[in-house]
């Protein structure tokens, strides 16, 4: 088991290292220079610009040779210092990232986990019940066939604009301040629901389609036929099929996680809802390279951490891994 663990860990460390390096390199490859473009708005005298520029370069850690900057970047990173935002100067990137992660946890975590659980259930049902398969699955195919943003736009149009049940955008409305009051919680939930709902529906389609195929494989497999010939009850076979079918779904979750989180960017943009993905997208638009770095890195860290967690869970629920690695030891 330790070996499995160790191997995974090495992969994670390498991934992290590559991510950090790419992350550091990217802003330095762009044509143009962040400080210069920031100062394009400055209308004052040349001497004042010079002074501003020197000051900003120091504050942004852009002076020194590239290697030195790279080492500094790592040193700061390990201290949890992601630098300062250019556009929201002098705010710290780590603070900005933290403000956004909260919303990712609020929306993505429940949307992904619930859609996974419910999707697997419905998928398993569809796998053995032809009627469900015939009527519900095409609908789910429809969900996964729509680009996230288009789906989100239609959800906004129907539930927010036409029916007026929910607000069209943002995390909470005007005239409301974050506070632990009933009023704020209601406002927050009303704004939270549609982004959550969109992510949930899209995920639901995805997972139930996956599970449906898995369960059909399992139910038609040799061991299931064997069980059936032994006279086992359908329920027992169904249970086995579900348990075996879920395993690839767990791996699937690990693989898809990064894609789901990134797909959420367009949904966040449609709802003008905060989140790491949207933060990153805004940073690109506004050429705020330090926020871009911080958000990208945090996004990858988040995905890696979730993957790691799934790996551990997988280890416990898949007997094969447990056995194969403990035998070797």
């Amino acid at each position: 088991m330790g070996k499995y663990f160790g191997k995974k860990l090495i992969i994670y460390i390498i991934t992290f290292f590559i991510a950090v390096t790419i992350n550091w390199l990217a802003p330095r490859f762009i044509p143009g220079d962040p400080v210069t473009s920031l100062l394009a708005q400055y209308q004052g005298p040349a001497a004042g610009r010079q002074m501003l520029e020197t000051r900003l370069r120091t504050l942004f850690g852009l002076e020194g040779s590239l290697i030195q900057q790279y080492i500094n970047f790592w040193a700061n990173l390990l201290r949890g210092d992601l630098g300062r935002s250019i556009l929201q100067f002098p705010r710290e990137v780590s603070e900005i990232v933290k403000n956004n992660i909260i919303y990712d946890i609020a929306v993505l975590l429940p949307a992904i986990s619930l859609s996974w659980i419910v999707g697997n259930k419905i998928g398993a049902m569809a796998g053995e019940n032809e009627k469900i398969d015939r009527y519900i699955m095409p609908l789910f195919y429809g969900f996964v066939s729509s680009p996230y943003f288009w789906f989100a736009i239609i959800v906004v149009f129907v539930f927010a604009h036409s029916l007026g049940w929910f607000p069209t955008a943002r995390a909470y409305g005007a005239g409301v301040r974050p506070a632990f009051t009933l009023n704020f919680i209601i406002v927050f939930l009303r704004h939270w629901f549609l982004p959550f709902f969109t992510m949930f529906l899209v995920g639901l389609g995805q997972w139930s389609i996956g599970m449906r195929n898995m369960v059909i494989y399992e139910i038609e497999s040799n061991y299931a036929n064997y069980l059936r010939s032994l006279g086992a009850r359908q329920k027992l076979i169904r249970n086995y099929a579900f348990r075996n079918g879920v395993l690839p779904q767990v791996t699937g979750l690990a693989i898809q996680l990064g894609q789901i989180v990134s797909g959420a960017i367009t949904v966040q943009v449609v709802f003008d809802y905060p989140g790491l993905g949207r933060l990153m997208y805004q940073a690109v638009q506004q050429q705020d390279f330090f926020v871009l770095q911080g958000a990208f890195l945090s996004l990858i860290l988040m995905v890696l951490a979730a993957n790691f967690l799934i790996d551990i869970i997988y280890m416990f629920i898949d007997p094969r891994i447990r056995l194969s690695y403990s035998e070797e030891e």
Binding site: W165, F166, G173, A174, G175, V176, N183, I185, I186, V187, L189, R190, F193
Partner: peptide, 14 residues
Amino acid sequence: VFTMTFAFTVRADR
């Protein structure tokens, strides 16, 4: 969530 969002028509204090 549903009762909360529908039971109260929150006209923000604005």
